[in-house]
Every structure is written in structure tokens, then in C-alpha cells.
């Protein structure tokens, strides 16, 4: 049996999207957060490390990751203010195999195009010529610069 009280209807949550300039401002804020976290947190931490650890690749990776999480926090705040889920806003939906296939084919075409157009650097030109003269053309791909 239903009472005479009308059922409460819940309105869909209000969402909004950041447009052109607002997106740029949020990116600028995230860049600022990246540098602030880097200067205030990472540099003092690096200063405390022994010198042999400072040049370690893992230190380098962590040194970039910590400020990146600061920037990510700004993005998370921006997306939260839109009322949308982060996954929906950023388009983190499962990838489809045909899309990956098309993308890989495109990358192969672009890579081959770049190989065909690229001139060897000045320092490598002598080696390029000697390879060509030796008949090892596969190793000196692209146009002949000798």
C-alpha cells in the first residue's frame, strides 16, 4: 500500500565541462603545482641524499614522479569540480583491439617516412658514406648524402 506522500525524485547530478580558457588555466595551475612540489619537496630531499644516489636512475624517476603527483592533484580537483568521474572526463575506457591496430599501422607509416626523410647528423655522415661505399646499404637507409 502506498501512502499519499509523493515519492521524492532525485535530480541527475549537475555536471559541467571546463572550456577552452578554463582548461588552459587549470593546466597552468598544474604546471605551477609541479614546480612548487619540485622546489619545496623534491630539491630538499635530493639535497639530503648521498652524492652517489643523486645520479641513480631511480632517483631521477622518483624526482619526476613526486611533482607529477602534485600536478595530478590539480587535475583531480578540476575534474571533481565538474561533478564528473575522473575516468569519464579523461576518457579512460577500455581500449579496443582494432583501434590499437590502426594506431600501430599509422605509427609504422610515420616512422618509415621519418627514416626516409632524415639526413644523418654531421658527425655520422662519414660513417654513412663509408657504409654506402662498402655496399652495406641496409645499414645506411634513406637517401644518399655522399
Amino acid at each position: 500500500m502506498t501512502s499519499g506522500v509523493p515519492l521524492e525524485t532525485t535530480a541527475p547530478p549537475k555536471t559541467r565541462e571546463w572550456k577552452f580558457w578554463a582548461t588552459i588555466l587549470w593546466v597552468a595551475a598544474s604546471v605551477a603545482a609541479f614546480f612548487i612540489v619540485g622546489v619545496l619537496l623534491v630539491l630538499p630531499l635530493l639535497g639530503m641524499l648521498p652524492s652517489e644516489l643523486k645520479s641513480h636512475p631511480l632517483t631521477n624517476a622518483v624526482g619526476w614522479l613526486i611533482p607529477w603527483f602534485g600536478a595530478l592533484g590539480v587535475f583531480a580537483l578540476a575534474i571533481r569540480l565538474t561533478g564528473m568521474r575522473m575516468r569519464d572526463y579523461l576518457g579512460f575506457v577500455p581500449p579496443r583491439l582494432p583501434d590499437i591496430g590502426i594506431g600501430l599501422a599509422g605509427l609504422v607509416v610515420l616512422f618509415l617516412w621519418q627514416c626516409c626523410c632524415s639526413t644523418p647528423p654531421r658527425t655520422g655522415r662519414r660513417r654513412h658514406c663509408s657504409i654506402r661505399i662498402a655496399g652495406q646499404w641496409l645499414r645506411a637507409h634513406g637517401p644518399n648524402y655522399c
Binding site: 565541462e17 582548461t23 587549470w26 572526463y89 576518457g91
Partner: peptide
Amino acid sequence: LLFRGFLYRGWAA
């Protein structure tokens, strides 16, 4: 995340 995620979404809209 930055270019095809956040920037693309905002600018495409």
C-alpha cells in the same frame, strides 16, 4: 593524461 586526456576534453568541448 595531459594532452589527449585533460586538454583534449576541455578544448573539444
